[in-house]
Design a protein around this nucleic acid. Structure first.
Lengths: 138, 138
DNA sequence: TGATGTTTGCAATTCTGTTGCATGCGCTAC
DNA sequence: GTAGCGCATGCAACAGAATTGCAAACATCA
């Protein structure tokens, strides 16, 4: 599995290191989007800044994307692996569960087109839904 | 106008005070959504914490809603006055202008319905678009 | 007036995001 | 091999946002 992780890093154009393997591995294991603080806790005793910069690097290389779910802290989640696809600026919906407090990507749920008033030019869009996730509603 | 402001506060179930009048008046004058820091600057020399708590009070009474436009600081904007209408959990789109850095409510631009995967229950939704606003694109 | 509860202002703390700097580690060229 | 170079890491430190505690000021009502 470490081999997989490294392969994925290299595919993204990132030199694999111990820290990067660790972070990516953690993100892969994690089903939901997590914050820097959570990552730091999960990987303790690692340095917060190093994880922070690792995430920035991942983000630059489109390995992860950040989500602002309104909780105050940015969350990070892996991007879909469909490398050759449309360059998706996070065109999928994100879901924050009020019950378990986790944030999920809904990669199959695309953001519907929005017709803006005259004069407004759209460059980016983010849609965060809040409610109860499938696990908590079951 | 102070009378109007006070009337609006009372309509929301908030006891009018000098500070609350001031904050509400400022929000009314303001065309866009503003952050706590901006409010503090605009109303100087007021206490940041007092403004903060005033906004929390307003928010609890659905007089303002907060918007997370990804700039790191929450912004606040007045809710629509259509008192009797549907309880709108901010069902309109918010727009952040990359050029003038302001955040606007687009009260007429409603968030399209999103079909969630099985099991997910929606309670709230927020959609923030980024791009160029009408004034900057003109 | 006195008792009570709300509002305000100040101090202080926590948390997130971020930068600077020095060290360490691996790689390449000699 | 080793000197030099560049990138990665860890630590210290800072800025700004959000939040809490406490005490003084104020309004309210009996």
């Amino acid at each position: 599995m470490i081999a997989d992780v490294e392969k994925r890093l290299e595919a993204a154009g990132i030199k694999p290191t111990a820290m990067r393997n660790l972070v990516l591995e953690y993100l892969l294991k994690q089903g939901s989007a997590i914050s820097l603080a959570e990552l730091e806790r999960g990987l303790a005793p690692v340095d917060r800044v190093t994880v922070y910069r690792t995430l920035k690097t991942f983000e630059e290389h489109c390995l992860v994307h950040s989500i602002n779910d309104g909780t105050g802290a940015a969350k990070y989640a892996l991007c879909q692996e469909d490398s050759g696809e449309v360059r998706h600026h996070d065109l999928h919906v994100h879901f924050y569960c009020n019950s378990c407090k986790e944030t999920f990507c809904l990669p199959k749920t695309l953001i519907p087109a929005v017709v803006l008033p005259q004069g407004f030019i759209s460059e980016e869009v983010s849609l965060v839904m809040k409610g109860v996730c499938e696990r908590c509603s079951a």
